[in-house]
């Protein structure tokens, strides 16, 4: 599916494009592709969904979005995908996943993330979400972050063994 040069290209661009006049030519030079080849390969990654979006990746905390809450819900299994899809459409929701319940100690199966400029704003947005989606009957917890011990951009292409197998993982 993806060849060694694709892999080289992905490894290089995951750290970001150079902020110079001809970024794709510059990337190409590092890995032995010409500018057009780099552009065509990236376009193909986007078409096939290997890359979800290409653009500016903002640091929302630095931009004042300092309140960050993970919200977990216990949604009946037959409704979880419908609710998940609906919640994802709210513009203040970032990330929305279904995960397995962990018995009585943690009965939640739907997770979403809300980033806001203040705690109050996040709570307001959550209330709005609950009201508009009729989620009030379901148990939930809101987990504000207190401290970040580590945060790095996801590096998928690390020098660890057999990176190609990752694509099928």
């Amino acid at each position: 599916m993806i060849d060694q040069q694709d892999l080289q290209l992905l490894k290089t661009i995951q750290h970001g494009l150079p902020i110079t006049s001809r970024p794709y030519a510059e990337i190409g030079k590092q890995i032995g592709l010409n500018e057009t080849e780099v552009i065509e390969r990236i376009a193909l990654f986007m078409q096939t969904g290997l890359i979800k979006r290409l653009g500016v990746i903002v640091k929302h905390q630095r931009l004042g979005y300092t309140a960050n809450a993970m919200v977990v819900f216990d949604i009946p299994d037959h409704r979880v995908s419908e609710v998940g899809e609906s919640i994802s459409k709210a513009r203040f929701v970032n990330l929305c996943y279904q995960r397995p319940r962990q018995g009585k100690q943690w009965p939640y199966n739907l997770y979403c993330m809300i980033h806001g400029k203040s705690r109050e704003k996040v709570c307001q947005q959550l209330q709005q979400l609950i009201k508009s989606r009729d989620l009030d009957p379901y148990d939930r917890e809101i987990l504000f972050s207190k401290q970040c011990f580590k945060q790095r951009g996801a590096l998928y292409f690390t020098p660890s063994p057999s990176p190609l197998s990752v694509a099928n993982g």
Binding site: I19, I57, Y156
Partner: peptide, 24 residues
């Protein structure tokens, strides 16, 4: 853009990979 990068308002200009399609 260079200034935004220096001031740490952007981490990079680059790709976002979908979760779990590459890597777990």
């Amino acid at each position: 853009l260079q200034e935004l990068k220096q001031l740490d308002f952007i981490s990079r200009i680059g790709p976002v990979f979908p979760p779990n399609s590459l890597g777990n």
